[in-house]
Protein backbone atom coordinates (compact mmCIF):
# COMPACT_ATOMS: atom_id res chain seq x y z
CA UNK A 1 0.00 0.00 0.00
CA UNK A 2 2.89 2.34 0.79
CA UNK A 3 6.40 2.02 -0.58
CA UNK A 4 9.11 4.49 0.43
CA UNK A 5 12.62 4.22 -0.95
CA UNK A 6 15.51 6.53 -0.02
CA UNK A 7 13.27 9.42 0.99
CA UNK A 8 15.00 12.64 2.07
CA UNK A 9 13.52 16.06 2.73
CA UNK A 10 14.86 19.47 3.71
CA UNK A 11 12.82 22.56 4.65
CA UNK A 12 15.51 25.01 3.67
CA UNK A 13 18.27 25.23 1.19
CA UNK A 14 20.73 24.18 3.85
CA UNK A 15 22.05 20.68 4.15
CA UNK A 16 20.13 19.93 7.34
CA UNK A 17 17.67 17.21 6.46
CA UNK A 18 14.39 16.72 8.32
CA UNK A 19 14.17 13.22 6.84
CA UNK A 20 17.33 11.34 5.90
CA UNK A 21 17.27 8.60 3.30
CA UNK A 22 14.52 6.48 4.89
CA UNK A 23 12.96 3.39 3.35
CA UNK A 24 10.03 1.24 4.45
CA UNK A 25 6.96 -0.52 3.15
CA UNK A 26 3.45 -0.84 4.51
CA UNK A 27 1.44 -3.86 3.44
CA UNK A 28 -2.26 -3.91 2.60
CA UNK A 29 -4.37 -4.18 5.74
CA UNK A 30 -1.43 -3.46 8.02
CA UNK A 31 -1.45 -0.91 10.87
CA UNK A 32 1.94 0.70 10.76
CA UNK A 33 3.11 2.91 13.60
CA UNK A 34 5.56 5.70 12.94
CA UNK A 35 6.96 6.56 16.33
CA UNK A 36 9.33 9.18 17.55
CA UNK A 37 9.70 12.32 19.62
CA UNK A 38 8.67 15.79 18.44
CA UNK A 39 10.84 16.97 15.56
CA UNK A 40 11.96 13.45 14.65
CA UNK A 41 10.55 13.68 11.11
CA UNK A 42 7.22 11.88 11.60
CA UNK A 43 4.98 14.68 10.38
CA UNK A 44 7.35 15.51 7.51
CA UNK A 45 7.15 11.91 6.30
CA UNK A 46 3.38 11.85 6.66
CA UNK A 47 3.17 15.24 4.90
CA UNK A 48 5.05 13.81 1.91
CA UNK A 49 2.97 10.63 1.85
CA UNK A 50 -0.28 12.61 1.90
CA UNK A 51 0.95 15.03 -0.76
CA UNK A 52 0.91 18.06 1.52
CA UNK A 53 4.69 18.38 1.14
CA UNK A 54 6.42 18.16 -2.20
CA UNK A 55 8.56 15.10 -2.77
CA UNK A 56 12.16 16.28 -3.07
CA UNK A 57 14.19 13.09 -3.18
CA UNK A 58 13.34 9.42 -3.19
CA UNK A 59 10.73 7.09 -4.67
CA UNK A 60 7.35 7.05 -2.97
CA UNK A 61 4.26 5.15 -3.99
CA UNK A 62 1.01 5.52 -2.05
CA UNK A 63 -2.12 3.48 -2.76
CA UNK A 64 -0.61 2.49 -6.09
CA UNK A 65 0.16 6.06 -7.20
CA UNK A 66 3.62 7.49 -7.77
CA UNK A 67 3.37 10.67 -5.71
CA UNK A 68 5.96 12.53 -7.77
CA UNK A 69 3.10 12.96 -10.25
CA UNK A 70 -0.20 14.72 -9.62
CA UNK A 71 -3.05 12.24 -9.11
CA UNK A 72 -5.78 14.00 -7.19
CA UNK A 73 -8.07 11.02 -7.67
CA UNK A 74 -5.84 9.01 -5.32
CA UNK A 75 -7.44 10.89 -2.42
CA UNK A 76 -10.67 9.01 -3.09
CA UNK A 77 -9.08 6.05 -1.33
CA UNK A 78 -7.15 7.98 1.31
CA UNK A 79 -8.32 9.45 4.60
CA UNK A 80 -6.28 11.85 6.70
CA UNK A 81 -6.91 12.66 10.35
CA UNK A 82 -4.82 15.65 11.29
CA UNK A 83 -3.19 16.22 14.66
CA UNK A 84 -4.46 19.81 14.70
CA UNK A 85 -8.20 19.88 14.19
CA UNK A 86 -9.17 21.68 11.00
CA UNK A 87 -12.87 22.13 10.47
CA UNK A 88 -14.85 25.09 9.18
CA UNK A 89 -15.85 27.05 12.28
CA UNK A 90 -18.74 28.78 10.50
CA UNK A 91 -20.31 25.50 9.40
CA UNK A 92 -22.12 23.09 11.69
CA UNK A 93 -20.67 19.65 12.41
CA UNK A 94 -23.10 18.10 9.92
CA UNK A 95 -22.43 20.74 7.26
CA UNK A 96 -18.69 20.17 7.63
CA UNK A 97 -19.07 16.46 6.91
CA UNK A 98 -21.63 17.04 4.15
CA UNK A 99 -19.28 19.48 2.42
CA UNK A 100 -16.33 17.08 2.49
CA UNK A 101 -18.51 14.17 1.41
CA UNK A 102 -19.35 16.10 -1.76
CA UNK A 103 -15.67 16.52 -2.65
CA UNK A 104 -15.10 12.79 -3.21
CA UNK A 105 -15.99 10.85 -6.32
CA UNK A 106 -16.73 7.64 -4.41
CA UNK A 107 -19.66 6.58 -2.24
CA UNK A 108 -19.38 8.29 1.13
CA UNK A 109 -20.62 7.54 4.62
CA UNK A 110 -23.65 9.16 6.17
CA UNK A 111 -22.48 12.24 8.13
CA UNK A 112 -24.97 11.51 10.91
CA UNK A 113 -23.61 7.98 11.31
CA UNK A 114 -20.09 9.36 11.74
CA UNK A 115 -21.29 12.06 14.14
CA UNK A 116 -22.92 9.35 16.22
CA UNK A 117 -19.78 7.19 16.02
CA UNK A 118 -17.51 9.85 17.51
CA UNK A 119 -19.98 10.82 20.23
CA UNK A 120 -21.15 14.14 18.82
CA UNK A 121 -24.81 13.22 18.47
CA UNK A 122 -26.97 16.17 19.53
CA UNK A 123 -24.26 18.60 18.44
CA UNK A 124 -24.67 18.06 14.69
CA UNK A 125 -26.39 21.42 14.16
CA UNK A 126 -23.99 23.43 16.31
CA UNK A 127 -21.36 25.56 14.59
CA UNK A 128 -17.98 23.85 14.81
CA UNK A 129 -16.55 27.18 15.99
CA UNK A 130 -18.42 26.71 19.27
CA UNK A 131 -16.89 23.26 19.87
CA UNK A 132 -14.23 22.46 22.48
CA UNK A 133 -10.79 21.38 21.28
CA UNK A 134 -11.66 17.72 21.91
CA UNK A 135 -14.94 17.96 19.98
CA UNK A 136 -13.20 19.58 17.01
CA UNK A 137 -10.62 16.81 17.11
CA UNK A 138 -13.37 14.18 17.03
CA UNK A 139 -15.04 15.93 14.10
CA UNK A 140 -11.70 16.02 12.24
CA UNK A 141 -11.29 12.31 12.99
CA UNK A 142 -14.84 11.57 11.79
CA UNK A 143 -14.19 13.49 8.56
CA UNK A 144 -11.17 11.29 7.80
CA UNK A 145 -13.56 8.33 7.47
CA UNK A 146 -16.12 10.06 5.23
CA UNK A 147 -14.86 8.40 2.02
CA UNK A 148 -14.39 4.92 3.50
CA UNK A 149 -10.62 5.12 3.00
CA UNK A 150 -8.57 2.07 2.12
CA UNK A 151 -5.51 3.86 3.44
CA UNK A 152 -5.91 5.88 6.60
CA UNK A 153 -3.36 8.38 7.86
CA UNK A 154 -3.77 9.05 11.56
CA UNK A 155 -1.67 11.79 13.11
CA UNK A 156 -1.80 11.64 16.92
CA UNK A 157 -5.44 10.50 16.85
CA UNK A 158 -5.96 10.55 20.64
CA UNK A 159 -3.86 13.54 21.65
CA UNK A 160 -5.71 15.96 23.91
CA UNK A 161 -8.73 13.70 24.35
CA UNK A 162 -10.03 12.55 27.70
CA UNK A 163 -9.46 8.83 28.44
CA UNK A 164 -13.02 7.72 27.72
CA UNK A 165 -13.12 9.42 24.31
CA UNK A 166 -9.58 8.29 23.52
CA UNK A 167 -10.69 4.72 24.23
CA UNK A 168 -13.66 5.22 21.88
CA UNK A 169 -11.36 6.50 19.12
CA UNK A 170 -9.02 3.54 19.64
CA UNK A 171 -11.97 1.15 19.34
CA UNK A 172 -13.04 2.78 16.06
CA UNK A 173 -9.51 2.47 14.68
CA UNK A 174 -9.33 -1.17 15.76
CA UNK A 175 -12.68 -1.91 14.15
CA UNK A 176 -11.68 -0.36 10.83
CA UNK A 177 -8.23 -1.91 10.69
CA UNK A 178 -9.69 -5.30 11.59
CA UNK A 179 -12.05 -4.82 8.65
CA UNK A 180 -9.04 -4.43 6.35
CA UNK A 181 -8.21 -0.72 6.27
CA UNK A 182 -4.51 0.01 6.07
CA UNK A 183 -3.46 2.55 8.71
CA UNK A 184 -0.39 4.71 8.98
CA UNK A 185 -0.30 5.90 12.56
CA UNK A 186 1.99 8.74 13.53
CA UNK A 187 2.35 9.19 17.26
CA UNK A 188 4.64 9.68 20.18
CA UNK A 189 2.24 7.74 22.39
CA UNK A 190 3.80 4.29 22.66
CA UNK A 191 0.84 2.79 24.54
CA UNK A 192 -1.48 3.46 21.60
CA UNK A 193 1.10 2.18 19.16
CA UNK A 194 1.54 -0.97 21.22
CA UNK A 195 -2.18 -1.53 21.31
CA UNK A 196 -2.98 -0.78 17.66
CA UNK A 197 0.04 -1.45 15.47
CA UNK A 198 1.09 -4.58 13.64
CA UNK A 199 4.53 -3.08 13.08
CA UNK A 200 6.26 0.03 14.32
CA UNK A 201 9.14 2.13 13.04
CA UNK A 202 11.25 4.17 15.45
CA UNK A 203 12.33 7.43 13.86
CA UNK A 204 14.75 9.86 15.43
CA UNK A 205 16.55 12.85 13.93
CA UNK A 206 15.03 12.00 10.53
CA UNK A 207 16.35 8.44 10.46
CA UNK A 208 14.55 5.16 11.00
CA UNK A 209 16.54 3.23 13.57
CA UNK A 210 14.34 0.17 13.78
CA UNK A 211 11.24 -1.48 12.24
CA UNK A 212 9.60 -4.52 13.83
CA UNK A 213 6.45 -5.84 15.47
CA UNK A 214 5.83 -4.70 19.06
CA UNK A 215 5.87 -8.30 20.32
CA UNK A 216 9.15 -9.06 18.61
CA UNK A 217 10.66 -5.87 20.01
CA UNK A 218 9.60 -6.85 23.50
CA UNK A 219 11.16 -10.27 23.08
CA UNK A 220 14.30 -8.82 21.63
CA UNK A 221 14.81 -5.80 23.87
CA UNK A 222 12.42 -6.14 26.78
CA UNK A 223 13.26 -7.66 30.13
CA UNK A 224 10.85 -9.25 32.57
CA UNK A 225 10.89 -7.20 35.71
CA UNK A 226 9.55 -7.52 39.23
CA UNK A 227 8.73 -4.39 41.15
CA UNK A 228 8.78 -4.97 44.94
CA UNK A 229 7.89 -2.51 47.69
CA UNK A 230 8.75 -3.56 51.25
CA UNK A 231 9.24 -2.13 54.74
CA UNK A 232 12.82 -1.68 55.95
CA UNK A 233 13.47 0.19 59.22
CA UNK A 234 9.93 1.60 59.07
CA UNK A 235 10.65 3.03 55.61
CA UNK A 236 8.94 1.91 52.37
CA UNK A 237 11.58 0.81 49.87
CA UNK A 238 10.96 0.09 46.16
CA UNK A 239 13.20 -2.09 44.02
CA UNK A 240 12.91 -3.12 40.34
CA UNK A 241 14.65 -6.41 39.65
CA UNK A 242 15.17 -8.45 36.47
CA UNK A 243 13.86 -12.00 36.48
CA UNK A 244 16.41 -12.91 33.84
CA UNK A 245 19.38 -11.90 36.01
CA UNK A 246 20.73 -14.51 38.48
CA UNK A 247 21.84 -11.86 40.97
CA UNK A 248 18.44 -10.13 40.87
CA UNK A 249 16.62 -13.45 41.30
CA UNK A 250 18.60 -14.11 44.52
CA UNK A 251 17.80 -10.58 45.67
CA UNK A 252 14.06 -11.18 45.18
CA UNK A 253 14.30 -14.23 47.50
CA UNK A 254 16.30 -12.24 50.00
CA UNK A 255 13.74 -9.42 50.12
CA UNK A 256 10.84 -11.84 50.52
CA UNK A 257 12.64 -13.66 53.37
CA UNK A 258 13.97 -10.67 55.28
CA UNK A 259 11.36 -7.93 54.94
CA UNK A 260 7.66 -7.33 55.08
CA UNK A 261 6.63 -7.15 51.40
CA UNK A 262 3.95 -4.56 50.71
CA UNK A 263 3.44 -5.11 46.94
CA UNK A 264 5.07 -7.27 44.29
CA UNK A 265 4.23 -7.00 40.54
CA UNK A 266 5.72 -8.51 37.43
CA UNK A 267 6.17 -5.94 34.67
CA UNK A 268 6.75 -6.26 30.91
CA UNK A 269 8.97 -3.70 29.20
CA UNK A 270 6.94 -1.03 27.42
CA UNK A 271 7.58 0.21 23.86
CA UNK A 272 8.62 3.49 25.41
CA UNK A 273 11.30 1.80 27.49
CA UNK A 274 12.45 -0.12 24.43
CA UNK A 275 12.53 3.13 22.44
CA UNK A 276 14.71 4.75 25.09
CA UNK A 277 16.91 1.68 25.22
CA UNK A 278 17.34 1.59 21.43
CA UNK A 279 17.68 5.29 20.71
CA UNK A 280 19.03 6.59 24.00
CA UNK A 281 16.39 9.33 23.80
CA UNK A 282 13.03 10.00 25.42
CA UNK A 283 9.78 10.70 23.58
CA UNK A 284 9.13 14.30 24.59
Amino acid sequence: MISVKNLSHSYGNDRKLAVKNISFEVENGETFGFLGPSGAGKSTTQGILTGLLKLQKGDVSVAGYDISRVHNERFNTIGVSFEQSNVYSKLTAKENLQFYAKLFDVPTRDPMELIHLVGLLGKENDLAGTFSKGMKHRLTFARSMINNPELWFLDEPTTGLDPAIAANIKDIIKEKTTAGTTAFLTTHNMFIADELCDRVAFIIDGEIVLIDTPSSLKLQYGQKLVVITYLKDDQVVKETLKTTDEKDRLRIGEVVNLYEVQTMHTKEATLEEIFIQVTGRGLV
Binding site: L52, E73, F75, N76, V87
Partner: peptide, 13 residues
Protein backbone atom coordinates in the same frame (compact mmCIF):
# COMPACT_ATOMS: atom_id res chain seq x y z
CA UNK B 1 -9.49 27.15 10.68
CA UNK B 2 -6.44 25.45 9.13
CA UNK B 3 -8.75 23.95 6.50
CA UNK B 4 -6.65 24.45 3.36
CA UNK B 5 -4.72 21.25 4.20
CA UNK B 6 -7.98 19.38 4.67
CA UNK B 7 -9.10 20.31 1.14
CA UNK B 8 -5.62 19.49 -0.18
CA UNK B 9 -6.17 15.82 0.76
CA UNK B 10 -9.35 15.51 -1.29
CA UNK B 11 -9.69 15.03 -5.06
CA UNK B 12 -10.15 18.81 -5.41
CA UNK B 13 -7.15 20.30 -7.21
Amino acid sequence: DNTINAVNVTPVS
